[in-house]
Nucleic acid binder design. Structure first.
Lengths: 115, 115
DNA sequence: TACTAGTGCTTCGGAATCAGAAGCACAAGA
DNA sequence: TCTTGTGCTTCTGATTCCGAAGCACTAGTA
């Protein structure tokens, strides 16, 4: 794990010299499974293995990596009982994903017209 | 390029496309540079090399790959003059990203409090 | 006292993906 | 003709991801 590779606003991001917060967010979200993890955790706090199952049995090594990254940037936190949960910031992020979900329905409908 | 590997919302199953279309979207967006490309193309249509520059000089091979994928799922189209542009569906997707941008600002502010 | 089953997490080899330099064919301008 | 810029491909090495295996620990069961 290279901790310093986690994209953060205010600092240069992978392939970026500007460090604009949006680019940091796009980089963070543009990593496999991160969006999905945020989505699944939004429903309810989950333990490691259960969360893994919800994410189509993604590999445990990557899941662990993502969880560390998301903790570093305060989107995910560990509860007293050891479970993983979204922080308030994390919940905001998930809510911000709402329109994306609506869009994906329209997208699905449009693509279905052609097969 | 394996064309069939591009995530698409599944065909309607038992009258509902809801669950799977979101997962397909999360998978599609969870690929490096995809979100960024949609974002940059939202400003205006761009040629290949200019788009590449806007995306922090990402590698041309990956850019080409992403553009093919995004064309397959009707988010990006090629104009008569050869430039790349978002389709109307693509513009909708970019607009759906609006709340994510607002969120990223709050995220930046909160993370700045600690360093 | 086992024994079992579940947990969070790590390790590691191979597979898939990405990065980035190089270069090709083409077009427009000087 | 010579240059410059374009879209795009190909190639090699680096990075990332996958996934099976297994470890240490806990809770329950007998």
């Amino acid at each position: 794990m290279n901790a310093s590779s986690t994209p953060r606003p205010g600092r240069p991001v992978r392939g970026s010299t500007t460090g604009r917060s949006l680019m940091a967010a796009l980089d963070l979200f543009g990593r496999r499974w991160t969006l999905r993890i945020i989505w699944e955790l939004g429903e309810e706090p989950l333990g490691f293995r259960l969360l893994q199952r919800r994410c189509d049995d993604m590999s445990s090594s990557v899941l662990r990596q993502r969880l560390v990254e998301l903790q570093e940037v305060r989107i995910v936190e560990v509860l007293d009982d050891g479970g993983y949960a979204l922080t308030s910031l994390g919940h905001d992020a998930r809510e911000a994903l709402g329109p994306v979900i609506e869009w994906s329905r329209r997208w699905a409908a449009e693509l279905a017209d052609e097969g």
